[in-house]
Design a protein around this nucleic acid. Structure first.
Lengths: 348, 348
DNA sequence: TGCTCGCATGTGCACGGTCACAATTGTGAG
DNA sequence: CTCACAATTGTGACCGTGCACATGCGAGCA
């Protein structure tokens, strides 16, 4: 029990074998829970492992077995609440299943950067990809590179089958719009996200569908960039011609910026203008007034993404999944259409 | 040029060698930029690689060379703006240097979960660790496990030398407090973060130091949990006894929750109460009123963390680093102390 | 011409696991 | 006690790459 440490290297399976007086293969069997091993042998080996602080070498295992047990996550703007939350959920779910997660974040989204990030992930021999940068350009690059591994996107590309999530976005947007219509609003403006994001496009589609259903007119949506700053400036712009009584913003940040602009203009929310956001970020309930918004279960979406990927990867493991439904959370930023805006002029 | 694909496996260095009519070692030399290779040979090999879509197997490389070129990032609450931002910056910097980043997120911070997450990272044979979960418990576990790899923390533990960042936190807190004192406030309350976070503790220390310097009294700080919800409830609590004219919140989220509570109570900010936050999250400039806060360069902190880790890991690479300074951003949530609160009572 | 030297390239093994297959031991029936 | 068969364990090759150590070859020099 004293001629333990042969080298300065980390102990290997053979070191354990030697000390336990068995062959390396027997040790390997312990590692892989092989059924036919004598209990006493197993116990002895486990004890030696403990003594040596043995830790299996994943690289060697990956090399030998031909898989890496690693998935890649490609994100854009991973500092935003929603994506960050989903990434955390994916990471958690993956770890639970013994998978490693390698991430690549896109700071800029030109094709070169996208390709660079994807190459980085593929270098790691990832077995699957989660795309949280649902921009068309990304899918273009994915197709061009002819990726060999399965991937899922947090939004539908129209080419894959994560439709639940896509329906989500559309449905959520419809719910938000419906809410405003139910309150009597007839002049509703949409502050949209960048249209190269499928997500933004889906929300806009939901909005337009609902507007159409109600036989209403609307301005062409304002195309924003998700940021509160943009919401603020868009608000200033909108206020030049006050021909609306409600705004549906494609995310909470823009909605909050918009609220700021409305405050600056001494307008009352919801007295003069109603505002709905999307996402339900944690501060949404503490703005002034608290923001009516569409709640998304980002954790659930992340888990679902990983579960779906696992299925796509054809592992035996099949984690049960439930579709994710958006939810309208009514707070203080929406109210009945102001009297001055009742559809009198439209009546005759 | 037709008997290309020998198997269904991914092409290996030997496949390339065979098609290029050289030995596998020569191919390896091309991969590693060995100086003595004839240009023509190199060109030929590169072309074959291109044809075969050859991609070096990182697992094999890791096994052979004995290193993984992977670093681990342990985070808590990675969905918060600051940490998320820093993680993205670390990932970006690491990728630039050819490193992979494996993350583990702590949803709960009990020792078992911490150990679990660390084990996961160590299983991947990470060569270094970045800790963004600066809770004492984490360091306890780190010491207990007797981790063999270097690690850096985004906050000082008092045992390592990332003092710049720690000084940052203290300095930032002092700046925030000083700002309030300069405006004439004498009754300042601190809404602190959870004290098992070194970060929160440092901010509180900065606050107390500055209070002490100015010979002021203060309540024992209220210990929060970083969330806007807590800020809201703390505000309600504080308002029972209105014996303060200013609040310094340890982060923006709590500050925003506090603003909400103040609005609910029909108090004016900064007319009745001044509020300072910490972090300068993107929505901070769009709250009502816009939040005065301490700006932190999260990207810079992330980059610095990776650069420091690289140095600790003893790689030749030494990325130049610059210390990170916090910055006071004065917006609308702070103003002169209200007349009703001038230190009359304290004068005699 | 013969020798040394340096560049360009090849040979064989190690890295730490797993797999396929062989070998050994143990068990119960005849 | 012997044999068939199952349970347990051992042997050697292989995964893809890099390293140490040849080897071949042409140039420079005596």
């Amino acid at each position: 029990m004293s001629a333990d440490l042969p080298k300065d290297r980390a102990p290997s399976i053979r070191d354990v074998a030697r000390l336990a007086g068995v062959s390396h293969q027997t040790v390997s069997r312990v590692l892989n829970d092989h059924p036919s091993i004598r209990e006493t042998t197993k116990a002895r080996i486990l004890q030696v492992m403990e003594e040596l602080q043995y830790r299996p070498n994943q690289a060697a295992r990956a090399l030998s077995k031909g898989h890496s047990r690693t998935i890649g996550v490609l994100t854009a703007s991973s500092a935003q609440y929603g994506p960050a939350r989903s990434v955390a959920a994916i990471e958690d779910a993956a770890r639970r299943q013994g998978y490693f997660v390698d991430t690549a974040n896109l700071s800029v989204a030109d094709p070169a950067a996208i390709e660079d990030a994807l190459e980085h992930l593929l270098d790691q021999a990832v077995e699957g990809l989660v795309i949280i940068a649902p921009q068309e350009r990304v899918f273009d690059v994915l197709e061009r590179l002819d990726i060999a591994v399965p991937y899922v996107s947090l939004q539908s590309t129209g080419k894959h089958d994560l439709r639940e999530l896509a329906a989500d976005q559309i449905l959520g947007a419809k719910m938000a719009t419906r809410h405003l219509i139910d309150l009597g609003h007839r002049e509703i403006v949409h502050l949209a996200g960048p249209q190269d994001w499928n997500e933004a496009e889906a929300r806009m589609r939901g909005f337009l569908l609902e507007i159409d259903d109600a036989d209403l007119m609307t301005h062409p949506p304002i195309l924003g960039d998700w940021t509160a700053d943009f919401g603020y400036f868009a608000g200033q712009e909108l206020l030049r011609s006050r021909d609306f009584s409600a705004v549906f913003a494609a995310n909470d940040e823009m909605a909050l910026g918009l609220l700021h602009a409305l405050h600056d203009a001494r307008l009352s929310v919801p007295g003069d203008v109603s505002v709905v956001g999307f996402d339900d970020v944690p501060v949404a309930s503490h703005s002034w007034p608290p923001l009516t918004t569409i709640h998304q279960d980002f954790d659930g979406i992340g888990r679902l993404a990983f579960a779906t990927l696992l299925r796509e990867m054809g592992t035996g493991v099949d984690v049960p999944t439930a579709p994710i439904a958006p939810r309208l959370v009514v707070r203080g930023s929406t109210g009945p259409v102001p009297v001055s805006r009742l559809p009198l002029l439209k009546r005759y």
